[in-house]
C-alpha cells in the first residue's frame, strides 16, 4: 500500500498501464515534457520516450481524431483535453466518430481509447476552466463517462478505462486532485466501470453524487447527525448503475441528487426519471436535486453563489426529510 492523492493515483495508473502494455500512448497539450499543466502525466515521457508520450499542437480535433486512427491501428491512446471547457473543438470527433465507430463498422472496429479531462469549479479559475459538462458526454450513445472521487477509484477506474474495449471519457475532479490522500494498493488493479460505490450505508434517505461533490456531501453529514443517509458515489455516469440506485431508493424512499453540472436536462433529471420509472411507489417524498444554476459558471468573484457547499446540502436534506408523501 502507498499513500496517494487522486493526481498521483492517476499518474500511477498511466505509468503501470504503459509499463504493462506497449500499445498505450499518452498525449495532449503540454502533456509530454512538462507532464501536463497539473502534472498528471509527470515523469512518463522520461520513462517511456517521446514516441509514446508527447506534446501536441493546440488542436483538440487532431488530438481526439488521431486517437480514433491510432485505436483502429493497434494502439490504446489516452489523450488529454487540458480543461473540459476546451474539449469542445474535439467534441465533433467525439460525437461523430468516437461514439459511433463500433456501430458504424458493425463491430469490425472498436476504439479502446480514453479522453481525460480535468473538470469542475471551485478553483478560482479563469473563464472556461470551471465547467462541469457531464451532460454533453453522458447524452451520447456509445460513450462511457467515468468520474472518480477517491484516489483508490481514480487508479482502478483509470486502469479499467484503458483496458476497456470501448471509448471512455474520464473526467477528473481537479478541485480534489491534491485535496486528500488515501492508502491504495501499489500493484495494478481495476475498479469495474458501470458500478456505483456505496460510500456510506444508511436507511433514511439516499444521496447521489460524484467527483468533488461526494466529499461535500460527506462534510454535510456532520451537520445533520440525526439523519441516517445512504451516500452513493455514482463513479460511472454512463452507463449508469441503475440497480444500485433503485435498491437504495426502495430502502430509503427519499433521494437527493447533488451535482455541479447545470440543472436543466442534466444528470439528475435522468436519475430521477429512472427512479420514477422503477421505484415510484416506494417514494415517500418528491425526489430532489441540488445542482448548478442554469447560468454560465461565474468567474471567481461570483463563484461562491454557484458552488454547492455542505451547508446548502444539509439545508436541502433537512427540507427533504420534513416532507411527507
Amino acid at each position: 500500500m502507498a499513500v496517494k492523492t487522486i493526481l498521483q493515483a492517476i499518474n500511477e495508473a498511466l505509468d503501470q498501464s504503459m509499463e504493462k502494455d506497449d500499445s498505450v500512448v499518452v498525449y495532449g497539450e503540454d502533456v509530454g515534457h512538462e507532464g501536463g499543466v497539473f502534472r498528471t502525466t509527470a515523469g512518463l515521457q522520461k520513462k517511456y520516450g517521446e514516441g509514446r508520450v508527447f506534446d501536441t499542437p493546440i488542436a483538440e480535433a487532431a488530438i481526439v481524431g488521431s486517437a480514433v486512427g491510432m485505436s483502429v491501428n493497434g494502439l490504446k491512446p489516452v489523450v488529454e483535453m487540458q480543461f473540459s471547457g476546451f474539449s469542445l473543438p474535439g467534441y465533433n470527433q467525439v460525437v461523430a466518430h468516437v461514439a459511433r465507430f463500433r456501430n458504424r463498422s458493425r463491430g469490425k472496429y472498436h476504439l479502446p481509447m480514453v479522453v481525460r479531462m480535468p473538470y469542475g469549479g471551485g478553483v478560482r479559475a479563469l473563464e472556461h476552466h470551471s465547467e462541469s459538462l457531464e451532460t454533453l458526454y453522458a447524452h451520447i450513445p456509445g460513450l462511457k463517462l467515468v468520474i472518480p472521487s477517491t484516489p483508490y477509484d481514480a487508479k482502478g477506474l483509470m486502469m479499467a478505462a484503458i483496458n476497456d474495449a470501448d471509448p471512455v471519457i474520464f473526467m477528473e475532479p481537479k478541485r480534489i486532485y491534491r485535496a486528500f490522500k488515501q492508502d491504495i494498493p501499489e500493484e495494478p488493479y481495476e475498479v469495474e466501470i458501470g458500478k456505483a460505490r456505496i460510500a456510506k450505508e444508511g436507511n433514511d434517505v439516499t444521496i447521489i453524487a460524484w467527483g468533488a461533490l461526494v466529499r461535500e456531501v460527506e462534510k454535510a453529514m456532520k451537520q445533520v447527525d440525526d439523519i441516517d443517509a445512504e451516500i452513493i458515489d455514482l463513479r460511472t455516469i454512463s452507463p449508469m448503475d441503475t440497480e444500485t440506485i433503485i435498491k437504495s431508493i426502495k430502502k430509503t424512499g427519499r433521494v437527493l441528487i447533488v451535482h455541479e453540472a447545470y440543472k436543466s436536462f442534466g444528470p439528475a433529471a435522468e436519475i430521477i426519471s429512472r427512479i420514477n420509472e422503477e421505484a415510484f411507489f416506494y417514494l415517500e417524498a418528491a425526489p430532489k436535486r441540488l445542482t448548478g444554476f442554469d447560468v454560465t459558471i461565474p468567474l471567481p468573484k461570483g463563484e461562491h453563489h454557484f458552488i454547492i457547499d455542505p451547508k446548502q446540502i444539509a439545508y436541502e436534506l433537512k427540507k427533504l426529510m420534513a416532507e411527507k408523501a
Binding site: F293, D294, V295, T296, P298, L299, K301, G302, H305
Partner: peptide, 20 residues
Amino acid sequence: GLVDLEDIFKYTYEKLTPNL
C-alpha cells in the same frame, strides 16, 4: 468586493426566464 447574486443570473438572456 464580490459579485451580486442577481448579476450571475441577469445576463443569461435579455429577460430573466421564469425558470431562472
